[in-house]
């Protein structure tokens, strides 16, 4: 791999500009400017998408690049979100990581996010002020956003809880559910109701 902070690539959809991680934005700006200057008119009219390796660009930097590009007659497209499946990043600072099975009669109470590498068995209780992520089967009771955070979520590799609570909303799985789905699911609050969706997008 080159160590160049900026790579310009031609793709099916047009031109892609890739900005390397940890590169100085002033350098980036200069390089893009120079490269475009050297290939005058070649890119005119091209649709450009921008990719930053570290995931994001500052809004002001983004606007500056947009200006440069439009000077050369190019239009910048909105960046598409990556298709990679990422488990939701806990957005609260305190995280409790448990590498074991939480068994019947055991209660986990935590101010923050709880991540369990294992199962939470029936009869267990997990209460967190933040999110609850179970990288196994959740069969017990889970209460996310216990202090009232309605944006809290419960996600599990296999979501088969006895009862789910988010903030002050309580729900239980439908009685007629014959077989639980064999894919990860995520529960969150929508219009004061707990909804469960397959976990396959970051929408």
């Amino acid at each position: 791999m080159t160590n160049e902070p900026v790579i310009i690539k031609g793709t099916k959809e047009g031109v892609t500009i890739v900005v390397e991680e940890n590169s100085n934005f002033e350098d980036v700006k200069k390089i893009i400017y120079e490269k475009l200057q050297n290939s005058r008119n070649f890119f005119t009219g091209a649709k450009v998408s921008l990719k930053a390796k570290n995931g994001f660009l500052k809004k002001e930097d983004y606007t500056k690049l947009q200006e440069i590009l439009s000077d050369f007659g190019m239009s910048l497209q909105e960046a598409k979100s990556p298709k990679t499946l990422i488990f939701p990043k806990p957005n609260r600072s305190r995280v409790l990581l448990l590498k074991r099975t939480v068994r019947s009669g055991q209660k986990i109470s935590y101010k923050g996010t709880v991540v369990i590498l294992g199962d939470a068995n029936p009869g267990s209780e997990i209460v967190a002020t933040g999110d609850i992520l179970v990288m196994g089967t959740l069969r017990g009771m889970a209460h996310a956003g216990a202090a009232g955070d309605t944006s809290a979520i419960v996600a599990a590799f296999r979501l088969q809880p006895t009862q789910l609570r988010i903030a002050d909303v309580i729900s239980r799985p439908p009685e007629d559910k014959e077989q639980s789905p064999l894919f990860p699911e995520i529960a969150r609050l929508k219009d004061n109701m707990i909804v469960i969706e397959p976990y396959n997008s970051l929408k």
């Binding site: 074991r100 068994r103 019947s104 009669g105 055991q106 068995n121 029936p122 009869g123």
Partner: peptide
């Protein structure tokens, strides 16, 4: 099985 699970937890 539920009680056994509780016992495993206590034993651990």
């Amino acid at each position: 099985v539920r009680d056994a699970d509780r016992i495993v937890g206590l034993l651990e």
